[in-house]
């Protein structure tokens, strides 16, 4: 563990807590894409298949349980909670996210570290996470006034993978044979997808203006 990866995990945890805070306290999911939340639940479900077979550390297992539990409960909240589900705008959240799943699955079958079920599922989860934010970014472009919690949620979610890139650079230089092209390329693509969001987020913070993404 290094400071970049710890900061990345804490930033990721913070993004989940901000979203849970928004949904649980103000009982609203306005501006949140259910499709991105569903994709993330699928990402964790396929990535943490080893949660009961490979024990790495208490920290690792605890964080996996937190991410699994929070992602599935957020999906449940938005779908089934009588008050929260009312603030979900189905007509705006139209990205066909199933179109993301198939290519990621095919790519995982072709490019993986080992052709076993667990490894293919793991590679699938890495590829899927890289594009999981797309429905949310599309929804943000359609959302007139993005509330602060939603903006902070997306910012933290993007920042965590950027910190992971620093972690990979650090590990490359400090550990022998530490090379993981699948996570490196996917993590870079994932972070680049946030580039324009980061720009507008920073601009709105600098000029103290409401966050607005151009349509």
């Amino acid at each position: 563990m290094n400071i970049f990866r710890l900061a990345g995990d804490m930033t990721h945890l913070a993004s989940v807590l901000v979203l849970l805070l928004k949904i649980h306290t103000i009982k609203s999911c306005a501006g949140i894409s259910l499709k991105t939340q569903e994709l993330y639940a699928l990402v964790f479900a396929t990535r943490y298949l080893d949660i009961f077979t490979d024990f790495i550390s208490l920290y690792n297992t605890t964080m996996k349980l937190i991410f699994l539990g929070s992602s599935f409960s957020i999906v449940w909240y938005i779908r089934n909670h009588k008050i929260v589900s009312r603030s979900y705008d189905k007509s705006q959240d139209t990205f066909r996210h199933y179109f993301l799943i198939i290519p990621c699955l095919l790519l995982a079958l072709l490019v993986n570290e080992k052709f076993t079920f667990k490894e293919v599922m793991w590679a699938f989860s890495i590829y899927l996470e890289a594009v999981a934010i797309l429905p949310q970014l599309v929804l943000l472009q359609r959302t007139r006034n993005i509330d602060n919690l939603t903006g902070q949620y997306v910012f933290l979610l993007g920042a965590y993978r950027a910190l992971y890139i620093l972690n990979w650079i650090y590990r490359y230089f400090t550990e022998t044979h530490y090379v993981h092209w699948i996570t490196w390329v996917s993590g870079l693509v994932q972070t680049l997808l946030y580039a324009d969001f980061f720009y507008y987020y920073f601009e709105s913070w600098k000029n103290n203006k409401k966050l607005q993404l151009p349509a």
């Binding site: 990866r5 995990d9 990721h12 080893d50 490979d54 790495i56 690792n60 964080m63 996996k64 991410f67 570290e113 793991w122 992971y164 972690n167 996570t183």
Partner: peptide
Amino acid sequence: NSTKDVKDEL
């Protein structure tokens, strides 16, 4: 030595 390449990252 084939240290099982355990995925230690989240």
